Simulated assay, not measured.
Amino acid sequence: MCTASCSRFISGALYPLAFISVLCNIILFFPGGSVQYAKDGSLTEEVKYMGGLIGGGLMVLAPALFIHLTGKHGCCGNRCGMLVSILFAAVGVAGALYSLAVAVLGLNNGPYCKTIILWSTPFKDRSESYLKNRDWWGLCTEPKNIVEFNVGLFSTLLVTSLLELVLCGVQMINGLVGCICGTCNKKGVL
């Protein structure tokens, strides 16, 4: 596969991953489908870091657009464009790492929820993970099913950010090869 085709494949894969990251982050602001918790500020702290929106979304979408251009014949489909794509892919790596870090923290600390009468993060700083002990999940009484909600969405963010990280890393290697060897982009070959 030539470097231009590889760039088109990578950008095509990054678009839906960035969309999924943004969507997951937006949904995390509305536990139980209610705006009440966002209004009250009763959200898990890691949701407010917006790892999926900023890191896995915008910081990956911008490189995806430029990487897509390097796969086409024209201004960016050359050695110089491939060199610049390495820098854009590095921004994507940074964004994916940010999203990954926020997702890991969100899973590790658990949700912010109401336990009997107090709002807290009941699973934070425990010696044993709440992820291994589903019996603990009942500690959170409000919002309903918040543990499942957070685990599902932060797990999705974790997987998408890992995929984005791999794809942006591959593009950095692809960009280096394209910069050194050329893009194999010829008129009529696209």
Rank of each mutant, 00 (worst) to 15 (best):
T3E: 12
S5R: 10
C6Y: 13
R8F: 07
F9G: 05
S11D: 03
A13M: 14
P16I: 05
C24R: 11
N25C: 10
I26G: 10
G33I: 11
S34I: 10
V35C: 07
Q36F: 15
K39I: 08
G41H: 00
G41E: 00
T44P: 03
V47W: 00
Y49A: 06
Y49K: 11
G52I: 04
I54K: 08
A62D: 03
L69K: 14
G71H: 02
H73Y: 12
C75W: 10
G77L: 05
G77R: 08
L83C: 03
V84W: 02
S85T: 02
I86G: 02
I86V: 07
I86N: 02
A90R: 00
G92P: 03
A94T: 05
L100V: 02
A103L: 12
L105H: 12
K114R: 15
W119R: 03
P122N: 01
S127Q: 12
E128I: 11
Y130P: 04
D135R: 15
D135W: 15
W136H: 08
W136N: 12
W137A: 13
G138W: 09
L153Y: 06
L157P: 03
L157D: 04
T160K: 12
S161F: 07
S161Q: 13
S161K: 14
L162Q: 09
L163K: 13
V166W: 12
L167V: 11
C168G: 06
G169N: 09
I173H: 04
C179M: 11
C181V: 07
G182L: 05
G182Q: 12
T183M: 05
C184N: 05
N185H: 02
